[in-house]
Design a protein around this nucleic acid. Structure first.
Lengths: 145, 145
DNA sequence: ATCTCAGTGAGACAAGGTATCAGGTAGTCC
DNA sequence: GGACTACCTGATACCTTGTCTCACTGAGAT
């Protein structure tokens, strides 16, 4: 079963129709390698209007199929989610590659903070930025010591 | 020396002029209790145009006087920075109160992640959301068991 | 056949922010 | 003082990201 079919079934299971425009958006999302914007999708999928792309992305986000990636500069991008549950990202600012961090690294921190601050902590944002191994070696080749 | 004067000197030391509109924006920022938007400032300081308020906020952000606070929903607000160096926030989603977290709690995590991922990690976002002690007790009073 | 309703595209709208541009002003050099 | 320059200004146009509205379509139920 292709990813497209799997996602279509998932939508249908939740009572959503799998229409041609939705199918086009999902196909476009599946083609994206790293993080992307709605604008990227719009250029790539001619079969759906702007509003529909936004609506479908929102839908996919709610289903956990797509997650939001917060970039260095504060802008929000989207990404095909490898894990539906809560997770964080490690974003390469060189090539845009995104790596999921499988376990939530700050759950201990949250517990500790709850005790010390008096807050009941209900959520958090955590994203890391850097250069991946490939981009680092490229830089080293480009600028020899 | 007032905060306004101190910030004026800081601007001058960097070679920026302290003009009446900039002074008005800084005064408005100093009046804000928690986090605020540029729109909040615009309503509060009549002495400066929209573009100037945006420009001044960007300037203050670069100087570390104001820091950006990422809210739960992904929107960016601003806040008078208590610490010019890198830090994180604990935001009360009830009353909007913001608490600075003094030491960067993820520096250990960054080191660990650098080793395991091959990335050279250069930055990160970390914000916590929850309800502060005051808001929690209010809820308890409002909704008795 | 018709009714209903989720889904649609076009386009208006909104928030938040940047770019442009003509004009103002402070400081400097003569 | 006068000219020059660089910085700063407000108004306004514009961009980006996203939502809302509205008339329309098409699939499924009756």
């Amino acid at each position: 079963m292709s990813d497209l079919e799997a996602l279509s079934l998932k939508l249908e299971a939740r009572g959503y129709r799998v229409t041609p425009p939705r199918r086009a958006v999902i196909a476009a999302v599946l083609q994206q390698a790293g993080h992307f914007t709605v604008d990227d999708l719009l250029h790539r999928c001619r079969g759906a209007g702007r509003a529909t792309v936004f609506r479908t992305i929102r839908l996919l986000t709610e289903l956990g199929v797509v997650c939001r990636v917060l970039l260095d500069d504060g802008s929000l991008h989207y990404r095909l989610s490898q894990r539906p549950q809560h997770h964080h990202h490690l974003v390469c600012t060189g090539c845009g590659k995104v790596q999921d961090l499988d376990d939530c690294a700050v759950s201990d921190l949250v517990r500790e903070l709850s005790g010390s601050s008096g807050y009941e902590i209900e959520g958090h944002w955590l994203e890391f930025y850097g250069h991946c191994a490939a981009c680092r070696s490229e830089v080293l080749v480009g600028v020899p010591a």
